[in-house]
């Protein structure tokens, strides 16, 4: 039962993280792609930071920021009754930050590679920026969208450092598959560790195979 629970928790974390990233990533990638601001390189660096930082660094600072002893942690606890350390909510927040570039970068690149005048043509046809985004831009970057979704999901399933730092290892609450493997190996339960590991390998493989199958079948409207 613990095995199933841990896997379900992992998939739930990955799914929620991916949905949140999709909602946040689209407007941010859109802004970054079309921005001419002097701040753009700084924003891009911030977005990409989780790519190069060791996950434990991110986890460490999140732990410091949200611990009940810190000002922010205390304020969240008192005002919203929200505790982010060693809870599922904290895991989601850490995963969103950690997988951020994996959603934003493909989307930004997708927007940047669209023909220059598509959005402007839509405006001159009387359409709002919202309609333009929904009906013109997003449908034409659907491969980039799919890449963002797959990468964010897979990356969240595979994360370890951030999750361990901010979530710990509470079965049924914050214990995800990657931590369970580590835990079982440490306890010399190689059989159980193998069960987790093999399931992750199979899941990820099926997931990626489906992605590539779709990728090959769908004719890209705009090639890049």
């Amino acid at each position: 039962m613990d095995f199933i629970n841990t896997l379900l928790l992992t998939l739930r974390l990955a799914a929620i993280t991916t949905i949140i990233l999709l909602v946040l990533g689209i407007p941010i990638a859109y802004r970054l792609a079309y921005s001419r601001s002097a701040w753009k390189p700084i924003l891009e660096a911030l977005v990409s930071l989780p790519l190069v930082l060791p996950p434990t660094v991110i986890g460490f600072y999140l732990l410091l920021a949200f611990s009940p002893n810190s000002g922010l942690g205390q304020w969240l606890q008192e005002t919203f009754d929200l505790r982010l350390v060693f809870t599922f909510g904290g895991l989601v927040l850490g995963s969103v930050i950690y997988s951020f570039p994996f959603m934003v970068q493909p989307l930004q690149s997708g927007f940047e590679h669209l023909p220059a005048h598509l959005a402007e043509a839509s405006y001159t046809l009387g359409k709002s920026s919202w309609t333009t985004l929904w009906r013109v831009l997003l449908p034409n970057i659907r491969l980039a969208l799919l890449s963002g979704l797959v990468l964010s999901f897979a990356h969240t399933v595979g994360e370890f450092g951030v999750v361990l730092m901010i979530g710990g290892n509470i079965p049924g609450v914050t214990r995800v598959a990657s931590i369970a493997i580590y835990d079982e190996v440490e306890a010399l339960n190689f059989g159980e560790a193998n069960r987790y590991a093999l399931t992750l390998v199979l899941l990820t493989f099926v997931f990626l195979a489906l992605f590539f199958r779709y990728n090959r079948r769908s004719q890209p409207w705009i090639s890049w």
């Binding site: 598509l118 839509s122 405006y123 009387g126 013109v136 034409n140 705009i222």
Partner: peptide
């Protein structure tokens, strides 16, 4: 803004919407 001006624009690169067929491109407007 362009939406409130009585204009029609033909861009140098045509800027047709790749995800729509000819009729849908016109229908969009």
């Amino acid at each position: 803004p362009p939406q409130q001006r009585s204009i029609g624009v033909v861009f140098q690169d045509y800027a047709l919407f790749p995800n729509m067929n000819v009729r849908q491109n016109l229908h969009f407007a």
